[in-house]
């Protein structure tokens, strides 16, 4: 098993700074959903990770901890994630994306 980034929606949706998206070296890996957290009253949505593209470098963790100072991202083993987004389930909209969360580990 290997590590992937996991973003805490509750912490991320409070500020929605998008810094992790801008510092990830992989394209279309940390995506943005402006509907996330709306049911809890947060306005601007949150970022999420398409785990099949994440190489586990943890740059986003450093950026979130030291530049944004939000501590919303943790590296966890992929089989410990109950549900996660993968590229095949990402749907692009006009100004945002959504993803149906599924179990990332097959078989």
């Amino acid at each position: 098993m290997y590590l992937v980034a996991d973003i805490d929606v509750d912490i991320c949706a409070q500020t929605s700074c998008k810094l992790c998206t801008q510092f990830c070296p992989e394209a279309n890996t940390i995506l943005y959903n402006d509907q996330a957290g709306k049911e809890k009253g947060y306005k601007y949505g949150a970022a999420y990770v398409a785990v099949d593209r994440c190489k586990g470098c943890a740059q986003c963790v450093w950026v979130c901890d030291n530049m944004a100072k939000h501590h919303a991202i943790k590296m966890i083993m992929i089989d410990q994630l109950p549900n996660a987004a993968i590229t095949d389930n990402v749907v692009y909209g006009e100004k945002s994306t959504t993803a149906v969360l599924t179990s990332p580990v097959v078989g």
């Binding site: 801008q22 394209a27 970022a47 586990g56």
Partner: peptide
């Protein structure tokens, strides 16, 4: 750059090392 994460980027998956700053620059 501020719209990153909400549109499909020109760059696709690539075989460069994890955490490579060169990839980040190329992506930007």
């Amino acid at each position: 750059v501020s719209q990153m994460g909400s549109f499909k980027e020109i760059l696709e998956e690539h075989p460069m090392c994890a955490g490579c700053a060169m990839t980040l620059f190329i992506r930007l």
